[in-house]
Nucleic acid binder design. Structure first.
Lengths: 149, 149
DNA sequence: AGACAATACATGAGTTACTCAAGCTTCTAG
DNA sequence: CTAGAAGCTTGAGTAACTCATGTATTGTCT
């Protein structure tokens, strides 16, 4: 038994590694699909990722929270937000109770673009190929996984 | 019914959108987990992504194929490969039959680093929190989804 | 109330990953 | 044998991102 095999022995589950690969593959496919349509929407990938987080049906999020969800520095979100404002797709609003906080809210145009974005990726998503039952199973499993983290 | 709602009406499945979000969330969590350990392994994220693809148990891949899997330009893989060679983790070998093609192969050190990388993310993966039965179900569902793309 | 630390965002500089265009070598087709 | 295509490399340029710093606001401790 050589050293490499010994280390392999440590790896908890072969199947967990395979699952990881699958998730990353899917994520890559979706991202690439999105890229293809971004030119038409005149968005960059990083801006699109921000738009994706800006749900119109919930309370607007502080820039700091958005940075956390994007796994990047808050200063980066400042730049992305400025780009969205320039294009008239969102606007920064002061937080009603905390003067330090800025929240980012989509405009009507922004909401429209967001729907197009979702449409773009959801329509051709590999996950859309599953039937309803499978989708529900998958949703439950992923939900459990995410919650356990 | 306003315009935004009309567009919402087009979105095939609400649940498919939710699934998309889950996959992207998981992918983000895994990536962030990986980042945390990359400093210790002295790797950058992009180099690590390449190492991830360099399976020692299959035929070595041409740089072009690797570029396709990474969704990036071949010239970028040239750079990443050079970094791997500098660190002695991989070496470019000419293809036995086609003189134009270079394949990338991990060295013994490279294989060791790759196992550490897998260990790093697999051990703490949210997916590792599921039990064996759930993992198998999930694997089957994801496999079907990926195949349908 | 007043001082001090902490939080949230903004700004500027610098780094890195990446793309694109052009060039070289090798393979393939007529 | 020549023309074209395919694969990799090189160099230049760009965009995204981080880090350090600055400013305004909030919370806390006495």
């Amino acid at each position: 038994m050589n050293e490499a095999q010994a280390i392999v022995g440590f790896v908890a589950d072969e199947i967990a590694v395979a699952l990881l690969g699958q998730v990353m593959t899917l994520s890559g496919q979706v991202t690439e699909r999105m890229r293809a349509g971004l030119e038409r929407l005149d968005l960059t990938e990083s801006v699109a990722n921000l738009v994706w987080l800006l749900r119109p049906d919930t309370d607007p999020l502080p820039l700091r929270k958005l940075a956390a969800q994007l796994h990047c520095d808050p200063s980066n979100v400042t730049l992305l937000s400025a780009k969205l404002e320039e294009r008239g797709l969102a606007e920064r609003r002061p937080h009603p109770r905390d003067g330090r906080v800025r929240t980012l809210v989509l405009t009507a145009d922004g909401r429209r673009v967001r729907e197009e974005l979702i449409e773009l990726v959801a329509r051709h998503s590999p996950l859309a190929g599953l039937d309803k039952t499978e989708q529900k199973q998958l949703h439950a499993l992923l939900d459990k996984a995410i919650a356990s983290a």
